[in-house]
Structures are given as C-alpha cells and as structure tokens.
Nucleic acid binder design. Structure first.
Lengths: 82, 82
DNA sequence: ACCAAGTGTTAAGTATATTTGACATGGTGT
DNA sequence: ACACCATGTCAAATATACTTAACACTTGGT
C-alpha cells in the first residue's frame, strides 16, 4: 500500500520515432543498443529507462531530456510526512 | 571485453547541494525519499540515478535535467558495428 | 579527551531495468 | 491462403539501482 509514488513519467519516444523517418522499434533498439522489448515496454509506460538509455535517446532524436520526458509530480500525500 | 560503454554521465548534485543552503546529504536524501548512501554513491559517480530520482532532484533544486546531468557521448568504437 | 555531525565506504539483501526466447495479433504483399 | 514485418506481451534470467546496517575518518564544539 502507498508505495513510493513520487510522480508519473511520460515520454515522447513513440512520437519522435515516427517523426524521425518512421523509425521502427527494431531499428531504434539497435541504434540504442537495447532490445526491441525494452523499447516496447518503455513506450508502453511499463517502466522508465535508465538515465543512460535516456541520454542515448536524446542523442538519436537530437533533442533534450526535458523535451523527451515529462514529469508529473505527485501531489496525493497518502502516507505519512515529516 | 568492451561492455556497452555508451558514454559517461556526470552531475552537479554536490554543487547544487552547497548552493542550496548548504544542504546535507542526509537532508537531501530525506527530501528525495532515498537513503544517504544513495546520494553519496551518485555524487561519487558509482552509478547514475533512475529517471525518477533524477526528476525528483530537479524538483528540489528547481532546475532541469539537462542542467543537472551531463552526458559525454562515447566516441571510442572499440567493438564491432553494424 | 570526549562527543556529535557529516561524509566515505562496504557487504548482503530487495527492487527495478533489461535480456533472451517465445508466442499471438494485425497489416501488407504475393 | 501464405509469408513477412511490426508490434504486444509474457516468463525466467541477469544487471543495475537502491536499502539496511555497520564501521572508519575528519572537523567543530565542550
């Protein structure tokens, strides 16, 4: 119950992938040095990537971390505080 | 040999911590919801944080990911390519 | 000399990210 | 109908981030 829940991270990867030459998950995965499943999972929001992978993505899409990832800070203070 | 080595990530956490009211590792850790050892390890460059922790940091220091973390892309193509 | 606070560091455990291998689905071309 | 490609998804294994608990060192205060 009420895990850590700091916030929600979303990303523009799928979007960027289409903008960038209709790139396929497979191709992106190869360019990144990860597997296709990893891309799929990240796009699906199952988990968010490591900083390393995140940075590689900015390299490929020629963008910035702050443009590629969005952070929705958590406001629901369910648990205990200070 | 020649692991994955995409690049090197450095950060301004320690710097920001002093700028921000001489904040201690302990305090930062608490504000972040992680342990003191985690802060120490990240500052020492033993590993880089998850995107979640990274975003929390930008929240606390009122800065951006791109200002807090630096990415030195790897140029030494030791292994095989395409 | 002592104590407390801040930091470095290490070992063993849990949690999460990522891999490998597999199977299912929808689309497109033959 | 069949093959091919892109994607969704799942289970089991490995890698990395993070925790808990402990000990060492330095600095400042008494």
């Amino acid at each position: 119950m009420s895990k850590k829940a700091k916030g929600i991270i979303s990303n523009q990867i799928r979007k960027k992938r289409f903008e960038k030459d209709e790139m396929t998950q497979q191709e992106l995965a190869k360019a990144l040095g990860v597997t296709r499943q990893t891309i799929a999972a990240i796009e699906a929001g199952k988990y968010s990537p490591s900083l390393e992978v995140a940075f590689c993505l900015t390299d490929i899409f020629e963008t910035s971390l702050d443009e590629l990832f969005q952070w929705q800070a958590d406001t629901s203070q369910t648990g205990e505080d200070s």
